[in-house]
Amino acid sequence: MPGVNQDQSDKDSEPFVEIDPTGRYGRYSELLGSGAVKKVYRAFDQEEGIEVAWNQVKLRNFSNDPSMIDRLYSEVRLLRSLTNKNIISLYNVWRDEEHNTLNFITEVCTSGNLREYRKKHRQVSIKALKKWSKQILKGLDYFHTHDPCIIHRDLNCSNVFVNGNTGQVKIGDLGMAAIVGKSHSAHSILGTPEFMAPELYEEHYTELIDIYSFGMCLLEMVTLEIPYSECENVAKIYKKVSSGVRPQAMSKVRDEDVKAFIERCLAQPRSRPSAAELLKDPFFYEVVDDDDDGDDENA
């Protein structure tokens, strides 16, 4: 088969800079994105012949807390068992002892994250924004009704990914997810300040913090502005969030139905609806469901 010829003189071939322990996945040098503790590289699945994402977490960031490393590893392993079309698939995970990294392979979306995609395509109908929103909520509903319950804890537009040729949207960057089981309660403070619910700062919260973050995502989708961008630092964001002051971007939302829907998501925890409840909201009545035959994706 000519396809398996690995002639090193072929100038068009791109060399791997790293290969996983199984020999299946090869990493390229091209960086797709990076965060505080993680870098994401373009990679290739030699068995399936598809491009994937190679996520690398430097464990030295958690060197003062070995239990955090174990927890991160066990949570990522659990996430590998999740199957939902609105959640980025996790294919493999392993720890590299020599380089002190945690590595995991995920699917890659053609059009990058929703923040970049929305900036690139500025003329988008409310109908399209609703389609994206509905898919994000379906992913959250899967997390929140899973046994054990999973809280994403860092939902924002840079953690939602898009296949631009189909309009499919998937939640990714699950490295901060908390598995909370029957208690539905978590305690550690982490996330992206602009998208963090007020109760998250109080270190006692449930999966409804993801609904708050979703509301902020929708606000960003509508206004093309990161919430609380008027604040100079995290302390000022915290002060506004904890005192219930909405971001200035809310004043830019002209559609009253959209504004009311966002407000539902940002409500106090006791009156904040679940993902399942929001999916039944009249806000989505005009959005054709895509569960069965993919009609929504081709609309």
Results as ranks from 00 to 15, higher is better:
residue 172 G to I: 05
residue 22 T to Q: 01
residue 208 L to F: 03
residue 202 E to T: 04
residue 168 Q to F: 00
residue 218 L to G: 12
residue 253 V to P: 08
residue 284 F to P: 08
residue 294 G to F: 03
residue 36 A to F: 08
residue 244 G to N: 13
residue 7 D to F: 03
residue 7 D to C: 10
residue 171 I to L: 06
residue 140 L to T: 03
residue 63 S to Q: 12
residue 201 Y to D: 04
residue 76 V to P: 05
residue 133 S to N: 15
residue 259 K to A: 09
residue 13 S to R: 14
residue 8 Q to P: 12
residue 147 D to V: 13
residue 39 K to E: 05
residue 7 D to V: 04
residue 286 E to Y: 02
residue 231 C to A: 08
residue 257 D to L: 11
residue 17 V to R: 03
residue 14 E to Q: 08
residue 18 E to S: 11
residue 192 T to W: 09
residue 278 L to T: 06
residue 226 I to R: 08
residue 25 Y to N: 04
residue 269 P to M: 13
residue 251 S to K: 13
residue 43 A to D: 05
residue 292 D to A: 14
residue 194 E to D: 02
residue 35 G to Q: 13
residue 296 D to H: 07
residue 24 R to Y: 02
residue 121 H to D: 01
residue 250 M to Q: 03
residue 193 P to K: 00
residue 235 A to H: 11
residue 149 C to A: 10
residue 70 D to G: 15
residue 230 E to I: 08
residue 258 V to M: 04
residue 51 E to M: 10
residue 298 N to V: 15
residue 114 L to M: 06
residue 172 G to P: 08
residue 248 Q to A: 10
residue 202 E to H: 06
residue 232 E to V: 13
residue 193 P to A: 03
residue 54 W to I: 02
residue 18 E to Q: 11
residue 151 I to S: 12
residue 151 I to R: 07
residue 29 S to G: 02
residue 187 H to K: 13
